[in-house]
Design a protein around this nucleic acid. Structure first.
Lengths: 323, 323
DNA sequence: ATGAAAGCGCTAACAC
DNA sequence: GTGTTAGCGCTTTCAT
């Protein structure tokens, strides 16, 4: 009887035991499809993610999986090949058909809102709501704060300015980091030098680095991702500029190899775990108590990991400076 | 009417159109739970994966997701916190309850078989079957061959022997690489030097590297993973041994940053995409044609990516060698 | 070629 | 507290 399996009250221990025994001997396994059909609830959360194995997205996914499981839900996954509104709308659509009680959009893209008729709550992780649903929640990784902290770290070391290699601007995450960098600079009344743009890859960091290496006025660079930072460092080294003696580099993510590249990379750690956990808490509340209003999650703490790729600027007489 | 949505024959175009129109205006969305309940098929494949964001597992997952989607199935995901037989049995169990038509075990652990009553076909990706199910399939990445190729690359360069930093031996993948390394050495009648063991992390590669750096007889090392290779190189560099002039290092995986670390890492590329695609083809066949027998997938091609971390051994007079 | 009807295995609501 | 029953929205089979 269902009352036993659903842990409902008012069941005599004797009866419960009898049912359990029978179930075991019969090899009974509850059928979720029937449950879902009868109750209208699937106990499943759908996740729309990016189809890439990058460290950031992959870590977030792992954290989400854990959070979903801890919340007692099962997980359906769809990933979008191309991170455009149509793609994510398609993903949401397919999740809805499969049947989910809530959706997590872990695809920090934000260009034009895709509209779908969504009747379950949706959590946007690391991006503002891109469409409206029954209820939209948000939780972030505090990227603006982290980017400010990264820039401040370099400024505090004595650099007069900090250059930035940004991520692709259709990524909300990239724009947040850019904003944080700009804030830090403006707060101290420094102008913002021209920005280089990459696509998160080490190759793009390398390309940007070749340009930057030519400008001897560059003494500090904040790369919006560790991979780009690693590519950047390689370009700098090849151009004969030492890191950190001539140029300081700070990354973003703290991927596992960051501590072991040469030189070990200073970076800021992304609080994936915390963001996923907080976000899911909201989502589950929205699912289980549809009425209450839910505030956005607070930003997680900032964690700058200082290693060997950053140092004070070279003491260099003014008249030696080019441009 | 269901005949329309299931693309069945014998439906007059007029009727089909009428139904489609009605569905659209009513905002009809088909309910999968009901479908599953009535048909006994969920059109969903369950994946058991490792709860880590490492490049290898993450890439495999991405490839699996794509293959599952291309096959027209939805995807349920469970990950195991701890990669032990009980964990994977639990994952399988929960997938079975949720309802899946087939299961992919992407958890290349192999220590003791966990037994569960599994009545759907199971694909073991990168590992031999760890338990018996209705039907078990396997597909691999050809790790033995890849490891042999990596070792041969070093031997062909003129190194008299090749040291190995292996992964944790409860990973089948780690044992395969070890076997490939050994094969290559024995094939040329070379003995196998003592093996160092790591845990895939750069930190463990670094630790192993500190030992290896002490032995001046070490001129070539094959690390079972790129991250370990990166840690190893760092340890070598810190010990004053140049790479590749004094010691050559080859990794395994070809993670995206490998080309940009210093020196750029020679490595072998893992054919995740191909393995996932081939494996899923088998799984889908097993689901849709339960009777036919299915052979294991063929190993994908080998791809050694030669970069700057490998070179011929230093020409060094015999009498300068310490043991 | 198409309508009608009987379940699939559960939950929820109702009796007792 | 516990047994009973009517659907949930489909697929499948049987009539037509």
């Amino acid at each position: 009887m269902s009352r036993v399996f659903n842990d409902e009250p008012y069941v005599a221990p004797a009866v419960r035991q009898r049912v359990l025994d029978a179930a075991k001997t019969l090899g009974y396994r509850r059928n979720n499809a029937a449950r879902a059909l009868a109750s209208g609830r699937t106990h499943t959360i759908g996740v729309v993610t990016l189809g890439t194995a990058g460290y950031g997205p992959a870590s977030l996914l792992v954290s989400i999986e854990r959070a979903v499981r801890d919340a007692g839900y099962a997980l359906r996954l769809v990933s979008t090949l191309d991170a455009d509104p149509a793609g994510i709308a398609g993903g949401v659509q397919s999740l809805l058909e499969q049947g989910v009680d809530g959706i997590v959009i872990s695809e920090p893209i934000d260009e034009g809102a895709a509209s779908v008729g969504v009747d379950v709550p949706v959590l946007f992780l690391g991006a503002p709501p891109a469409f409206t649903a029954a209820q939209t929640l948000t939780a972030g990784t505090g990227a603006v704060l982290l980017a400010r902290a990264a820039t401040d770290h370099l400024l505090d070391l004595g650099h007069t300015t900090v250059h930035h290699i940004a991520g692709p601007q259709r990524w909300y995450a990239a724009r947040e980091r850019l904003a944080g960098w700009r804030q830090a600079l403006e707060e101290r009344g420094r102008g913002t030098p021209p920005v280089s743009y990459g696509d998160w890859s080490a190759a793009s960091g390398y390309a940007a680095g070749r340009e930057l290496a030519r400008d001897s006025g560059v003494t500090a660079v904040f790369a919006a991702g560790d991979e780009m930072a690693i590519g950047l460092i390689r370009a700098l080294l090849e151009a004969g500029r030492r890191v950190p003696e001539d140029v300081s580099v700070i990354g973003f993510d703290d991927m596992p190899v960051a501590a072991y590249v040469t030189p070990p990379l200073t970076t800021v750690r992304q609080p994936f775990e915390a963001a996923a956990r907080e976000g899911l808490k909201l989502l589950v509340r929205a699912i289980e108590e549809p009425d209450v209003d839910i505030p956005p999650a607070a930003d997680p703490p900032v964690d700058v990991v200082a290693r060997a790729s950053t140092a004070p600027p070279p003491a260099r007489p003014q008249y030696l400076d080019s441009t």
